[in-house]
Design a protein around this nucleic acid. Structure first.
Lengths: 256, 256
DNA sequence: CGAATGCTTGACGGTACTCAAAGATTGTGG
DNA sequence: CCACAATCTTTGAGTACCGTCAAGCATTCG
C-alpha cells in the first residue's frame, strides 16, 4: 500500500468542472457545498500545484501571491529565528487552507514545506476579497477555517510552554493520529507517518537527541509502534492521559 | 495620571448611535469605517460590559454566547492543563476582537481574563453569520483580525519553543510595548504595565522564580525600567536584537 | 561500495525548575 | 493610624530535565 493510493487520488480531477468530482469533498470530514458555492470555488481556483517531498510550498519572509488548499500529502508551517532555530507551528493535512495569515502580515510570514509529495489547489490572493463579496457564506467558511487553525496553534503553544517532553510527544502522536484518521488516512489502525525526528523535535520545542530518547521511552512502554514510516497507536487512552490531551470528535468543516 | 484617562474614556459613548462617537476608531491604528459599515456594526452590537481587574471575561471550557471587542483595558487569553499549569496564549489590547475561535471549537475553548478593569463591546454570537451576509466587507475584516491574531500566537509559539529565558523576556517586553504604543497607550515613553510576574511566566512558559531572575538581570543591564506598574524601554535596539524580534510598523487594522 | 541521511546511545554540563524563606507592598479592619 | 493579612517580589540552595557534544549504527541511494 503506498501513500499515493489514498485518501484520494493524488491529483484532483482535471477538465471543465474539476471541483464537481473533488474526491476530498466526499469525505465525512467535510461539509457539502451547494452547487453555487462549488461554482464560485471553482472560479476562484487557478489550478493545481505539485511539490515534491521536502520542497517549499511557501517561502518564509516571501509572501505568496497564492493561497492553497492542500489536496493530498502532509505539510507543515514553520518559522525560523535568524540563527537557524526552527519552530514548526502546525502540521497540514488534506483540506487545510494555506496562506491566510500572510494576507495581512507584510513580510513577517511563516514558511510552508511539504513533508511528502503534495498536491495543492491554488487560488490567486487578489481574488480573496471578491470571493467574500460574491459568496459571504464562503467568507464565513474561511473565517471558520482560520479560527480552527488558530485553535491548533493555541494547543501547540500550551504544549511548548507547559508540557514536559513525555507529555509533548504523547500529545503530538495523538493529535496527528486523530487528524489523519479524520480525513481517512488510517488503514487497519496504521497511519503513514512521514516525519523524521527532527520534524518532531522542531514541532515540540525539544532538541533532536532528547526527542529521540523520549520517543524510545514511550515506544518501549508499548504505547505506540512505528514501522517503516507507519504509526500505530497501541494505547490511545494512556497517551491521551499522559499528554492531558483529549481531542473531541470534530464537526465536519468547510472545504474551500 | 491614571490608566482610566486614556487612550480613550473607559466607556464608549452611550445613546442612540453610540458607535458614531467611538473614540477608539479615531486612532490611526484603525481603519475608518463607512457610514453603512458603522451602522451595521452598531446594529450588531448588543451593549457594553465591564469586568474588573482579575475578573473573567470568558470562562474556559464554557463557550460564550457573546463576542467582544475590547474597548479599554488589558486582558489575556489562556488555557490550563488539568493539573493547573496555565499558559497565556496572547495578550489583548483595545481594538482586539474576542471569541472567534470558540465559534467552532465545541467546548475546548480558551478563557479570557481581564488584567486591568476592562470595558468591552458585546455582540451576540448568533448574529455573526448575518453580519457576514449583510456586509461581506465586515466579514473580510473579521477574517483579517483572526489572521492577525493567529500570527501573534505563531510568534508566541516560536518564543516558547525556541527562545531561551532572556530572549523570551526581551521579546515580550518589546511586543507589549509596541502594541501599546500603537493604540496610544504610551505617554512620554512610559506605558502602564499591569502584569505581575506570574502573568509573564505563564505567557513565556517559564517558572515564576526563573522569570523573576531573568527580569532582574535585564533590568540590571539597564535595558528597561519598571516603576510602580509603568514600563519604559531604555534600550529598544538591544532588546530587539536579544529577542531576535523586530516588529514592523503595522498597517491600520479594522475595528469591529 | 562509499556517501549521505537519519537513528541511537552515552557522557557531561547548564538552563531552568522546585523548595524555602525573607522582604516589600498593598489592602483591610479594629 | 496601626496591626495584620494577603499578595507579590526577591534571593539562595539544591536538583533535574533537557541541551550539547561525540560517536557508533542502520538504511538508503547513487
Amino acid at each position: 500500500m503506498k501513500f499515493e493510493d489514498y485518501p484520494v487520488a493524488a491529483s484532483p480531477p482535471q477538465g471543465i468542472n474539476p471541483c464537481d468530482g473533488c474526491a476530498l469533498r466526499q469525505l465525512d470530514a467535510f461539509l457539502p457545498a451547494s452547487d453555487e458555492e462549488l461554482k464560485t470555488i471553482q472560479s476562484f481556483r487557478a489550478g493545481i500545484r505539485r511539490v515534491e517531498a521536502g520542497g517549499s510550498i511557501v517561502e518564509e519572509h516571501r509572501p505568496s501571491t497564492q493561497l492553497f488548499t492542500l489536496y493530498a500529502g502532509w505539510a507543515f508551517r514553520y518559522k525560523t529565528l535568524s540563527d537557524g532555530r526552527r519552530q514548526i507551528l502546525s502540521f497540514l493535512l488534506p483540506g487545510d487552507f494555506i496562506g491566510l495569515q500572510d494576507e495581512f502580515a507584510e513580510g513577517q510570514t511563516h514558511g510552508v514545506e511539504a513533508v511528502t509529495d503534495a498536491t495543492l489547489c491554488a487560488f490567486p490572493r487578489n481574488k480573496l476579497w471578491p470571493l467574500f463579496h460574491a459568496q459571504p457564506k464562503l467568507g464565513y467558511d474561511i473565517t471558520w477555517l482560520a479560527a480552527r487553525e488558530e485553535k491548533m496553534v493555541d494547543d501547540n503553544l500550551v504544549t511548548a510552554g507547559r508540557r514536559n517532553a513525555g507529555e509533548r510527544v504523547a500529545m503530538l502522536l495523538m493529535h496527528l493520529y486523530r487528524r489523519a484518521e479524520r480525513v481517512g488516512m488510517v488503514r487497519d489502525g496504521w497511519v503513514e507517518f512521514p516525519f523524521n525526528q527532527q520534524h518532531i523535535a522542531d514541532a515540540l520545542g525539544l532538541s533532536l537527541v532528547h526527542t529521540n530518547k523520549t520517543l524510545r521511552r514511550l515506544q518501549r512502554l508499548g504505547l505506540y509502534k512505528l514501522d517503516a514510516g507507519w504509526l500505530r497507536i497501541m494505547e490511545p487512552h494512556a497517551l491521551e492521559t499522559l499528554g492531558d490531551y483529549f481531542e473531541r470528535p470534530l464537526r465536519p468543516t468547510p472545504l474551500i
